[in-house]
C-alpha cells in the first residue's frame, strides 16, 4: 500500500466510524432534539471524511465535484437541523426531563401574559 492508500484508508474508515456513531446515538438517545444532534452532526463529519478519502483516490479533476457535494452538505445540514429543531419544539417532541434550563419556554410564558 502506498502513502496515498494509507491516507485514503484512514479517512474512509474514520468517516464510516462517525456515521456509525451518529446512527448509534440516534437509536440510543431519548428525545427528538438530542437525536437530531446525534443524527445530523456526526453524519456530516462522516460524509466529509469519506468524500475526502474518495477524492484522494480519484484523479484530481474529480475532486472539484466531491468538494461541491461536501460544500452542499455543510450548507444544508445546519438549515435542516434548525428547521427540524423548531418543528420538534413546537410539536412537543422535547423530553423536558433532559433540559437543565429552558429559557425559551420562560420567555414564551412571559410573552403570553
Amino acid at each position: 500500500m502506498s502513502v496515498r492508500d494509507w491516507i485514503s484508508a484512514g479517512l474512509l474508515v474514520s468517516g464510516a466510524l462517525f456515521c456509525v456513531i451518529g446512527a448509534w446515538g440516534m437509536v440510543r438517545l431519548p428525545d427528538t432534539l438530542s437525536r437530531l444532534q446525534a443524527a445530523t452532526k456526526p453524519q456530516t463529519l462522516g460524509l466529509l471524511l469519506i468524500l475526502a478519502g474518495t477524492a484522494v483516490r480519484l484523479e484530481p479533476h474529480y475532486a472539484a465535484g466531491l468538494a461541491l457535494a461536501g460544500l452542499f452538505q455543510v450548507i444544508t445540514a445546519p438549515v435542516l437541523s434548525q428547521l427540524m429543531g423548531r418543528a420538534a419544539y413546537r410539536t412537543g417532541c422535547v423530553d423536558r426531563s433532559t433540559l437543565v434550563v429552558d429559557e425559551l419556554s420562560q420567555r414564551l410564558r412571559a410573552g403570553r401574559q
Partner: peptide
Amino acid sequence: AANVVSLAPGKFVLQ
C-alpha cells in the same frame, strides 16, 4: 453566524 453555530455537534440555533 447561525449556520456556523449550528454546524458543530452539540448545539444549534432553535429559534
